[in-house]
Design a protein around this nucleic acid. Structure first.
Lengths: 263, 263
DNA sequence: GAGCTTCCTTCCGCTCCACGGAACTTCCCT
DNA sequence: AGGGAAGTTCCGTGGAGCGGAAGGAAGCTC
């Protein structure tokens, strides 16, 4: 393991990505000058690169502003890990949602964050901070705790060494307390979270274990008032187990005969 | 409108994208040499670029092979048009799926293809050629016909001018026949397709109209044997109308107070 | 174990393309 | 008309990207 840093100078690719990443969940359309500001790149540089990106459909130019293009969407739909996971998980999440009618999440670990890869919710989605493709600190979410508890020890240690990030005033900031909770999670196979990510909401999560390691985790999120945790916990655990089994068998019989796309 | 072509020479960005796009639905993991082959780029070039892409998490290097990285997934989740559409559409598709238990699609037009942005299906997904992020020719699918029928006339004309691509032996290849069908679609607000995309399957689709133009279309796909088209047609049309209304109101009250992501 | 093939990695000098400052053009709002 | 901000085009320079070639590391066959 080596640290590789100290880029002498940002390459063209770096700059292009800085442009693309200048977009965030809230902002859908950015003007050229705003892009330049956010990326701290010269205006003419942004102009030129944005032009290239538009050519490649990674950006779209619409009434005087730029937005992320459909080319990105197409590319990302091929991301293997998440794709395999999502396809397999969708029906299970579906079932979970239909049984409970509460918001359901699926997430994977990426560094010190959970990245949500799937989310199913009803017509009203009450200001949850989660978003498909979005990140939250592992320690603040049920899914994150489930992932962390069943990760390699080094991952856990490294996470606990750094200062814990808080999102709400209920977020756990004491490493020892989190460590105790993780031990509990390992013992029960269930992770709970109470207003640590969103005020007024709690959730229960279960890891999707393949060979003892969490490749993902799923959760159900409900308002704190509802006292339904026991049933929800059972449901989420069942689904997680089902998904894990599905992944295992899918992984065994690698390459089913059916093709994927024609054109 | 000008044709812009004749790139003197592929730029770094071009090459990077060629590498990323070398992955397709079926192939999840590619070795370096295979990448070089698919992209027709020199080995050392691919090696260098792939290294940069890995640094940026657009690629992931796993046991001697490359796969698309989670960075792509994160980026794409911000693609505005599709994102807005998906978030709004999800509940409607959900309802549709729960009511019918058949595979449900949402797609948008991109050039001469439909690009699927959402798909809900049960545990068994019987070899449909559709895939979220995948493309199919407009004329071969219900969603495509719905989109085409309610597109600007120039789009329709241009599409009908070129030779029609066929996927199955039932795919429409006669422009005049397709044109007649499109007129029918415009009249009824419903598009049908029968084994033109997949043998043994038919589907009914309805456009999601905003100011008279289809910004998307949704469909239900069933085995040909089932004689349930009338009910399914009604259901899909209702959902499409609901989504259209939702989009319209969402577009009016631009910028609801709630933020999106914290960290 | 020599010899072949295939795959990956590293090196390095040349070239050419990306770079961004500056000048120019709109298009606002006073 | 004047001031300001956003977007576009130009162009000389330098260094980053380029890729051929050589070097290593496996895994074959005979």
């Amino acid at each position: 393991m080596e640290r590789k840093e100290a880029r002498g100078q940002p390459t063209m690719l770096d700059k292009c990505l800085r442009i693309l990443r200048a977009f965030d969940g809230g902002t859908q359309q950015l003007r050229l000058s705003e892009l330049a500001r956010r990326t701290s790149l010269p205006l003419s540089t942004v102009h030129r690169l944005a032009g290239s990106l538009v050519e490649q459909r990674l950006l779209a130019q619409e009434d005087g502003g730029y937005q992320l293009g459909i080319g990105l969407f197409e590319l990302s739909s091929l991301v293997s890990v998440e794709q395999e996971l999502r396809v397999a998980a969708r029906p299970f999440l579906q079932d979970l949602f239909m049984a409970t009618h509460e918001t359901v999440h699926l997430g994977v670990r990426e560094g010190a964050d959970v990245v949500y890869v799937e989310k199913i919710h009803g017509h009203s989605d009450l200001g949850l901070p989660s978003r498909v493709g979005g990140r939250l600190p592992l320690g603040c979410t049920g899914i994150g705790k489930a992932l962390l508890a069943f990760s390699a020890e080094e991952v856990r240690v490294e996470y606990l060494e750094r200062p814990l990030r808080a999102i709400t005033d209920q977020s756990i900031v004491d490493p020892e307390r989190l460590e105790r909770e993780l031990a509990e999670v390992r013992a029960t196979g269930l992770a709970f979270e109470r207003e640590e990510a969103t005020v007024g909401r709690e959730c229960v999560a279960a890891p999707v274990l393949v060979q003892g390691v969490a490749v993902a985790a799923m959760s159900i999120s409900v308002p704190v008032s509802a006292y339904r945790m026991p049933q929800l916990a059972a449901a989420v655990k069942t689904s997680a187990l089902g998904l894990a089994r599905q992944l295992r068998t899918a992984r065994e019989q690698r390459r089913p005969p059916g093709g994927e796309m024609s054109g």
